[in-house]
Write a protein that binds this DNA or RNA. Structure first.
Length: 416
RNA sequence: GGAGGGGUGGCCGAGCGGUCAAAGGCAGCAGACUGUAAAUCUGCCGGCGUAUGCCUACGUAGGUUCGAAUCCUACCCCCUCCA
């Protein structure tokens, strides 16, 4: 599918964003003409986005950078229905309040990547039209164009049926809602393209077909490959769950570390997808071998963190990493800080409690185990006694580095 | 509506009156080896805890028993077949 003429598709293609496209040539021409409006939908099930959403976000970012207009559709309405594509069990239904909170968080995550200023990216909530949809008129107008035969062939549905897991009518309607969203966005904002992960293909196509039948307009769909790590794990899921793009949930230091720990085989691919470095630079970096490749990982970590948290935070994270892992300089202030009151420290705080508070262990028992396994350290020295009590003097003015294993570190600070 | 099967720790999955905080696998955490990689090996892996100690847990609620994840009753949920 080489030879795109529009900058937008060329970039996406070269960087590995394209999995399927309904009509590459047609879309290319449209993009070439300029002023393309495209959207990606995010559901509202959490109060932030995570690394798993990053591919879509980067596609929107490139869209904007190459002179087009991104629309972010949050599923305030569809979240009330629940996407069956996840193939797990039905999702829990959220209240309006949850959804409102989540929407704000999602916007917060996105603002770092997209410009929502005048004439820029648009944030739209499909509750605007879905909430007041009237059943009979809707069925008469759109239901006639959608055949169950067709819908049953979609992957998301087929999987459920084959696995003999229940698929409720409510969920079955998800794709209808999403199809209608596309149509509605086309009407309201002239949106012509929907992008998403490869699991969204069926839903996207459904919208394209609907729009063609009702409004006789041609819409386009573009999906990105499902990103897994070289060893097959789903991207962006780690120990504590998702790697969030929100610095309140995942510190810039932890975010930087996430990228730094990329598997060798993924470095090139991730540089293309998750940074904006020029391709020849990336080719040079991914050609590095053995331990040299670590340099590429640091650059990946820096660039990815910069996009998400800004240059300054990325810098601090990089410095903290150098201090912690290479013993170079004092960049410890870049570590996530856990503040403990002076008064508390004056009385003495058990290390196990500190470990738990710092999020390095989930319970006191786990903290204890960590110590028994020899994984807990204070300023680099192994904690031998699980009953150890940390005092104000130990923390000092500089703070005290508390570590769980080689990779998780936190700075304990006294606070008045 | 009828008949049958099933609900066990984050997931899968054994257990079917005591020796069960519950085999095994996956995931996770830590240690060793390395390059903050991968692979491999070792340990840990409900909570509280100085503790051979206590608490919570095998769908829910009761009951039988010295003792129940295991037996009985009711209820809820899921699946299969029949109508």
């Amino acid at each position: 599918m080489a030879g795109f003429r529009s900058e937008f598709l060329r970039v996406l293609d070269e960087r590995g964003f394209i999995f399927q496209c309904t009509d590459p040539a047609g879309l290319d021409a449209l993009a070439q003409a300029g002023g393309l409006v495209a959207y990606v939908g995010f559901d509202c099930t959490a109060d932030a986005l995570h690394v798993g959403n990053l591919v879509s976000i980067m596609m929107l970012r490139w869209l904007q950078r190459t002179g087009h207009r991104p629309i972010v559709l949050v599923g305030g309405g569809t979240t009330k229905v629940g996407d069956p594509s996840g193939k797990d069990e039905s999702r829990r239904l959220l209240s309006d309040e949850d959804i409102a909170v989540n929407k704000r968080g999602i916007l917060r995550s996105l603002q770092k990547f997209l410009d929502f200023g005048e004439g820029g990216a648009l944030l739209v909530d499909n509750a605007a039209w879905l909430d007041e949809l009237r059943y009979i008129p809707f069925l008469r107008r759109y239901g006639r164009h959608l055949t169950v035969n067709r819908m049953l062939t979609f992957e998301s549905v087929r999987q459920r049926l084959e696995r003999e897991q229940p698929l409720t009518f409510l969920e079955f309607n998800y794709m209808v809602m999403q199809a209608y969203d596309f149509l509605e966005l086309a009407r309201r904002y002239g949106c012509r393209l929907q992008m998403g992960g490869s699991d969204q293909w069926g839903n996207i196509v459904c919208g394209i077909e609907l729009a063609h039948k009702t409004d006789r307009i041609t819409l386009y769909g573009l999906t990105s490959p499902l990103i897994t790590t070289a060893s097959g794990a789903k991207m962006g899921k780690t120990a504590q769950g998702a790697v969030w793009l929100d610095d309140n949930k995942v510190s810039p230091f932890a975010y930087w570390q996430f990228w730094r720990n990329t598997e060798d085989a993924d470095v090139g691919r991730f540089l293309r997808l998750f940074t904006e470095l020029p391709l020849d630079e990336i080719r040079r970096l991914e050609a590095l071998e053995g331990a040299e490749l670590n340099e590429a990982k640091k650059i990946l970590a820096y660039e990815a963190t910069r996009l998400c948290h800004g240059a300054e935070a990325a810098e601090r994270a990089a410095r903290a990493a150098r201090a912690v892992f290479e013993g170079a300089g004092d960049g410890l202030e870049g570590l996530p800080v856990v503040a403990v009151s002076r008064a508390r420290l004056a009385q003495g705080v058990p290390v196990v409690e500190l470990l738990t508070r710092a999020g390095l262990a989930q319970s006191l028992s786990e903290a204890r185990r960590l110590i028994r396994n020899g994984g807990a350290r204070l300023d680099g020295r192994k904690v031998e006694d699980e009953r150890l009590v940390v005092t104000l003097a130990m923390v000092g003015a500089e703070g005290l580095k508390l570590s769980a294993g080689k990779k998780r570190h936190v700075l304990i600070r006294a606070e008045s």
